[in-house]
Design a binder for these strands. Sequence first.
DNA 1: CTGGGGATGGGGCCC
DNA 2: CGGGCCCCATCCCCA
Length: 264
Amino acid sequence: MPRSFLVRKSACSRRRPNYSELHDSSPEFTFQQPYDQAHLLAAIPPPEVLNPTASLPTLIWDSLLAPQAQPIGWASLLPQEIPKVVELTSLSDEDSGKGSQPPSPPSPAPSSFSSTSASSLEAEGYAAFPGLGPLPKQLSGLSGAKDPQSRKAFNCKYCNKEYVSLGALKMHIRSHTLPCVCGTCGKAFSRPWLLQGHVRTHTGEKPFSCSHCSRAFADRSNLRAHLQTHSDVKKYQCKTCSRTFSRMSLLHKHQESGCSGGPR
DNA sequence: CTGGGGATGGGGCCC
DNA sequence: CGGGCCCCATCCCCA
């Protein structure tokens, strides 16, 4: 089953917002935290060593790359400072601090924002982007919910992505509203666990350690990528020159820098 | 140019 | 239905 079965992407907006720019260009972004830094730190779980059994698949990618253009709609027209947090703080109550990747978070978030209804999301969306004015008709969000009979899809009002479930749409909307804000630097994230991972960049916590060497990582995915370096089998192979790489990104780079047109 | 670490985004699954 | 976590993907940066 394809991972993207829930979303019909016209071509998803691959690129993430550049938060560093967001910082620099947004002096007014003064992070009014719904929780304080202490809370954030408290939410950081004690180091816990992952024992990666490293069941690395040995398959070699044969076909890959589905480079996607980015025909974003309305949202893409907006500069990055948008997700600026006007109402993020209210939204952030929803999940701030709840996230945890490795272990469980000790402290629950101050939650004044529970049951997120579609309409409230919509309202918050507008609240978060007060200057945007009315959305294009086709982007008026959650339209599917209003007419489930004729249309099962739920559209994001920000980018017009279409989802087959309201839950999926709600989750997606968070990538626009970025309700989880770092108490240290003010960066905003769509998910609590993303925030948690980010917080580790401040604390230096690295709960995931490699069983082959002594390296530790803050992120499980990075550990997984690291484990590839211990593996003899490189999963990603260039169809042109048959070279193999430990990561798809390396293969991409390889192809982009010479092998895409022919044997190197 | 390559390899690797760091950081982040987002959909899916399970409870 | 929502939260939490998993996994995959990707970009950036540096050696």
